[in-house]
Design a protein around this nucleic acid. Structure first.
Lengths: 202, 202
DNA sequence: GTCTATATCCAGATAGAC
DNA sequence: GTCTATCTGGATATAGAC
């Protein structure tokens, strides 16, 4: 019976999604070591033991979340590159897209907080650390490249493009931290102010 | 013998300082739960059990570090307020002071990362959480106030001062994360770029 | 598939020799 | 004061009933 097989697979997948959804906030705010399987189980409304029916270990859940977070980030970077926009417009679009998504969907901010957390920690499984280190490079190089081109057009302020890219992602991570710990704050940050940092004409 | 008593107290204090110094980096990068007493002991070059001669618990070490971090931050904020400078100059001074100290002394960046970590986590001892929440307000209000005054002088860009203060500290926290995980990077970030965010004339 | 109960392991904290 | 050895609690992961 391939049909029922497929159905049960779909339901299993759905359950896994539910676990991931609950685990994201916990891992992002408490870290890998600070999050207990029982916390995740409670958040998802299932018994502690049942989590192991869907994931072999806590590390596996964490790894899955990190993968997804980087996949999304990598995808967004490639899309940004391809957009038929000027470098200055791309910077504006990226800032607006990121901040609006942070303030609209909490989980987006948590994804970036998770990445920020993960890159700052040195106690993750070795395999994962390598993978993070590899995938973390693209976002910086994409922004750096856009800044370089924007400077040639005289639309972006002069300055070391690599440093400006670091600044770009530092702001994003800083805002992700803020958003994650102030869920009440409904006012979005001033995107104009951030744009002034990079763009000559805003 | 009050003299030998004093001497042994001084040595005890010295040992405690050594523990704190080693624990700071670990707690900042790995969090409270992710840091083991044995890690701290190894970092300090002493046996695991000996740590308990100087601190009653892991939480106590963490609490001590948080206290110190906030004391320094609070002190710096009050000093900044008192300085005989214009609002615009104060913003510049604060940015330069913070970033230069991050890139000159690693431990300064770790102090800010520790604060960023602590404010984003919800699993700390209740007493500590309250204390952090209370002490975390001053830095925002001080910067907000300076921005307000700078806007009256037409030296700071218009925009909600509270939001701009949030942006200010988000950048600082973002840079603290970056600095803490890239000890090799020797180039300081572009302070001019950050100044453009706030100041009309730079 | 879901639960409860339990085995196992590991880290925080303590005891006691030197 | 410093160490090694140990107690203890709690969290991961497993076993087995339903």
């Amino acid at each position: 019976m391939p049909r029922s097989k497929k159905l049960s697979d779909a339901m299993k997948e759905e359950r896994r999604e539910k676990i991931l959804k609950g685990a994201l906030r916990l891992f992002a705010t408490r870290g890998l070591a600070g999050t207990k399987i029982s916390d995740i189980a409670m958040e998802t409304g299932m018994a502690q033991g049942l989590v192991y029916h869907y994931y072999r270990s806590k590390d596996d859940i964490y790894t899955d979340l990190i993968s997804t977070a980087f996949e999304k980030l990598t995808y967004a970077c490639r899309e940004l590159e391809k957009l038929p926009l000027s470098p200055a417009e791309k910077i504006q679009r990226a800032l607006e897209g990121l901040i609006k998504s942070f303030w609209h969907n909490n989980h987006t901010a948590f994804n970036y907080l998770l990445i920020a957390q993960a890159t700052a920690t040195d106690t993750l499984p070795e395999k994962l650390k390598k993978s993070i280190h590899r995938q973390n490079k693209l976002p910086y190089s994409v922004i750096e490249d856009i800044i370089k081109k924007g400077q040639k057009d005289d639309m972006v302020w002069e300055g070391d493009p690599q440093q400006l890219a670091i600044l770009f992602w530092s702001i994003i991570k800083g805002l992700a931290i803020h958003r994650s710990s102030h869920k009440d704050t409904t006012i979005e940050p001033d995107i104009h102010a951030i744009k002034r940092m990079f763009l000559k004409r805003i």
